[in-house]
Nucleic acid binder design. Structure first.
Lengths: 224, 224
DNA sequence: TGACAGATCGTACAGCGTACGAGAATAGTA
DNA sequence: TACTATTCTCGTACGCTGTACGATCTGTCA
């Protein structure tokens, strides 16, 4: 057993690619992606900055690996239910995961080579659609539509500067409404008022659009 | 007339917030957002790096302003057609603009305070939906769904590492397929083959999903 | 024991955003 | 025209970044 393999097993002491990536993931959760530097990461691992480069070729590769950990966290579509419940569950899971790790969605634009968990995920989704009777072409369309919705929703949610309904109400009153003269922005005022009155739950909002999309996809299936 | 106002007019000589932001926009188009540094931007403007800070409080503010320029480029929904053609046109325009400036979508996650063009855009979209008979709540749902689709599509498109069908074919053969063993990823192989055979046009793909979404929203209108 | 490979990391470099404050240019007033 | 006040420009410097390079240290095997 080489020293390296030993290190991979003994997770408490010694480094490994796994430990580096997972700690980077945690650090990004804690401090945001801007707070993730090689030196700080090394510090959190009790190592010197340059030691990390034995496990990771560059920071870019580290970010790629972090994104793949995100995909590992997303539920794969079940094979035991209909395609709609299966896609619904995996989409809900994806949104939850992306909401829990808001740094991830911002990283995706710049990552171009999908990792293994990403590939496994795509394969499972495509399999689910194809088995449900979508043609190759229609499965591609469905994939784009569903993923666009999930990622776009996550992107918008990540850029909301509040986390709770209370914060929303405060922000609306103190920041938004003052810069929205009612005569120039009548409809935004109307919306803002309704939003503050009713509160706002991103999970519910997400489900609403998701169910519309799923229903719209149903007729694209070839077999009934 | 103050010196500053004069500078804002005389665009050839002298700086102004406009000139700084527009040049930053161009630089990002040319070199990507990673190539945009205050020093390089100053160089492109023939000025010292610190001079920029007279027109822009920080790089963050500069990025905010750049995003707002992006929104200025997006067509507002027309008031003279039905809501569907209007929303269709503005969504198509938004995708085009975001595809032309791929750095923009990556910036959106971190921008939390919308600029004036952004606000104008949202107001116009909401107005269009409300006038078409969507209730306040339904207009909010429609807004989320449409914007999620547009942004998510743009995000996925920006992370595609190819621009033309030829590049796609080359990449598929040289990079993707080799890492997709057919027994482990049968469906992805199937999709990849179909994609290479048929070519791939993001504009068409976008329209397909967009029309599904628009049709799905139609029944949410209160008045016929 | 000696040799070799794997792992660690100190140092250094170029580049980043920007705080500070000095100096130049311009505008307003007498 | 002369003096002052304001606006604008930017050189220097600080603390941070990713990482190239090479020295060192650790552990394995002959």
């Amino acid at each position: 057993m080489s020293a390296r393999e030993q290190r991979q097993v003994a997770s408490d002491t010694g480094l490994s690619k796994q430990r580096v990536v997972v700690e980077a993931f945690r650090l990004a959760d804690r401090e945001g992606v801007d707070g993730l530097s090689m030196r700080r990461l090394a510090g959190a691992l009790g190592a010197g900055a340059m030691s990390l480069y034995h496990y990771v070729a560059s920071k870019e590769e580290l970010l790629d690996a972090m994104i793949d950990v995100v995909f590992e966290e997303i539920e794969l579509p079940s094979e035991e239910t209909g395609w709609q419940p299966a896609m619904r569950r995996r989409a809900v899971s994806a949104r939850q995961v992306l909401a829990r790790h808001p740094w991830a969605i911002g990283l995706m634009e710049s990552r171009t080579s999908p990792g293994p968990a990403n590939l496994r995920h795509r394969e499972a989704v495509t399999a689910c659609l194809r088995r449900a009777g979508f043609s190759v072409v229609m499965a591609t369309h469905a994939n784009w539509l569903l993923d666009s919705y999930v990622y776009g929703f996550a992107l918008q949610e990540a850029s909301l500067p509040f986390d709770t309904a209370d914060e929303l109400a405060d922000l609306a009153e103190d920041v938004y409404l003052p810069q929205l003269p009612p005569d120039e922005f009548p409809y935004l005022n109307e919306s803002a008022a309704a939003l503050v009155a009713a509160g706002y739950d991103p999970a519910e909002e997400f489900i609403f659009g998701l169910d519309l999309v799923l229903a719209a996809l149903e007729p694209l299936r070839t077999s009934a």
